[in-house]
């Protein structure tokens, strides 16, 4: 456990110093500033637009940075042979991969918290009203990032190029969001297709259950559904990460 903690700490410091991390922060800040163009609209639409675009930016840039760090850890380090150094130390491969994962999601949590705070201040200045769902949305964004980071690490370990790792991870992100969008088509699908969609929902991260930022009025799920949704994300992450650890164990660099 101590080894996991040490690797995570190292990863967090490494990511915090990374240029891509600072760059994403600057990008999000620019998106927030651009939100002022909505000042001419009615108050309701202005606040709504700033919140939606701001939260969308937080989610998208957190996704991009998590993607970048995950591919770097699982693919680039193997390519550059820099992975040899940590693996020569008394650290198990599974501890290393879990530690790296923990470091990445802690960086993502920091990024989401910092940007969320900035957006909240901006909305507060615009006299927006906040409810629990608004703050919960950030936590659900974090859960989504946790899931995609784990999947990206697994994909990167199995990929033969950096580009394919990025492309497949992007496709998983899109598939995860579109699973809920095909719901209304299920009635018109053949039983075989319905079964396939169901299996896809098990394999791919089902973001429909976690996309609280898209339903901030909180009318999308009964309160009793939140805990199972959180546990779903956590269990999914462990399932993918143990699989990634198994792949990493067998991988030859």
């Amino acid at each position: 456990m101590k080894a996991v903690y040490n690797v995570a700490k190292y990863t967090l410091l490494e990511n915090a110093r990374s240029k891509s991390f600072s760059l994403s922060v600057v990008f999000i800040a620019l998106v927030f500033v651009s939100a002022f163009i909505f000042a001419k609209l009615s108050e309701v639409v202005e606040i709504r637009a700033i919140q939606d675009i701001g939260m969308g930016a937080v989610q998208f840039f957190s996704f991009l940075t998590a993607l970048f760090f995950a591919v770097k850890v699982a693919f680039v380090e193997g390519q550059n042979k820099t992975i040899y150094l940590p693996l020569t130390r008394p650290v198990k491969r599974s501890e290393y991969i879990f530690g790296r994962y923990l470091g990445i999601i802690l960086s993502a949590a920091l990024e989401i918290a910092a940007m969320g705070m900035l957006l909240t201040i901006l909305l507060y200045l615009k006299q927006a009203e906040f409810d629990g769902f608004y703050f919960l949305s950030y936590f659900f964004i974090f859960l989504k990032i946790m899931m995609i980071t784990a999947v990206t690490i697994l994909i990167s370990l199995a990929s033969t190029s950096q580009a394919s790792a990025f492309i497949f991870s992007f496709l998983v992100w899109i598939t995860g969001h579109s699973l809920g969008e095909v719901e209304f088509l299920l009635d018109e699908m053949s039983p075989a297709m319905v079964t396939m969609v169901r299996i896809f929902k098990w394999i791919f991260p089902n973001y429909t259950l976690l996309n609280l930022a898209d339903y901030t009025a909180g009318r999308f799920m009964a309160a009793a559904g939140y805990l199972p949704a959180v546990l779903y994300a956590v269990f999914y992450v462990f399932a993918v990460m143990w699989l990634a650890a198994a792949v990493f164990e067998k991988k030859e660099f």
Binding site: T208, L209, R219, F220, M221, A222, G225
Partner: peptide, 8 residues
């Protein structure tokens, strides 16, 4: 379980 409560 979560899907059961997903009303939207």
């Amino acid at each position: 379980q979560a899907g059961k409560h997903f009303t939207f």
